[in-house]
């Protein structure tokens, strides 16, 4: 954990007394990510909320688990495996889509290879907002270069917040934000 967090402690999180001694209530947020035993994650969540921790985020394994976590006071419940599976399914369904993040039921962010129809045009020529009601928030591009041994490799460039003059070229990956229904229209181009 060194290098990721400023402080790390190994302890039994089900030990309520130990958590108190640790001064857990001084922390703003706790993330309960242990998913091996449902019972432990419920007990830890309950303890943390009873101790007065403001925000507790918990990983759930099933709908029933989530329901109980909500009852014991979890502030946010996440389903990492399910969310990853959904994103993976999305990318398998269309090889042009590398990622999809659902921001809400209505809005999302999509990472997809630029459709051929949109290639070699600037963003102002493409009029993405007017035509498709989506915003291009970044462009990922592979830049070829020659290695000392003469072979070729790529480095990835990310243009964050591209301007109207930025041109979209073949192979670019566009990261777009918009309503899911509008993002779907671009997928079909």
């Amino acid at each position: 954990m060194e290098g990721i967090v400023s402080q790390s402690i190994v302890m039994d999180a089900t030990d309520e007394k130990g958590l108190k001694e640790l001064g857990i209530t001084d922390f703003d947020t706790a993330i309960v990510s242990m998913g091996e035993t449902i019972e432990d994650s419920i007990m830890i969540t309950l303890s943390l909320k009873e101790m007065g921790l403001r925000k507790v985020i918990v990983k759930a394994k099933s709908e029933l688990h989530s329901k109980i976590l909500r009852k014991v006071g979890a502030d946010r419940i996440i389903f990492p495996e399910r969310e990853m599976a959904e994103r993976l399914a999305e990318s398998i369904a269309s090889p042009k889509i590398f990622d999809f993040i659902e921001l809400s039921k209505t809005y999302g962010i999509i990472e997809m290879v630029v459709p051929k129809r949109l290639v070699n045009k600037t963003l102002s020529e493409l009029k993405m907002r007017e035509k498709f009601r989506v915003s291009v928030i970044a462009i990922k591009r592979k830049l070829p270069f020659t290695l000392p041994d003469g072979s070729t490799d790529f480095k990835e460039e990310i243009i964050v917040g591209p301007g109207g003059d930025d041109e979209v070229i073949s192979g670019d990956v566009l990261i777009m934000l918009g309503k899911n229904e509008n993002l779907e229209k671009i997928e079909k181009l």
Binding site: P95, K142, P144, T152, F154, G171, V173
Partner: peptide, 10 residues
């Protein structure tokens, strides 16, 4: 390399 450049990963 050319396919990778086009993001045609398969």
């Amino acid at each position: 390399m050319a396919y990778e450049g086009l993001s045609e990963k398969d």
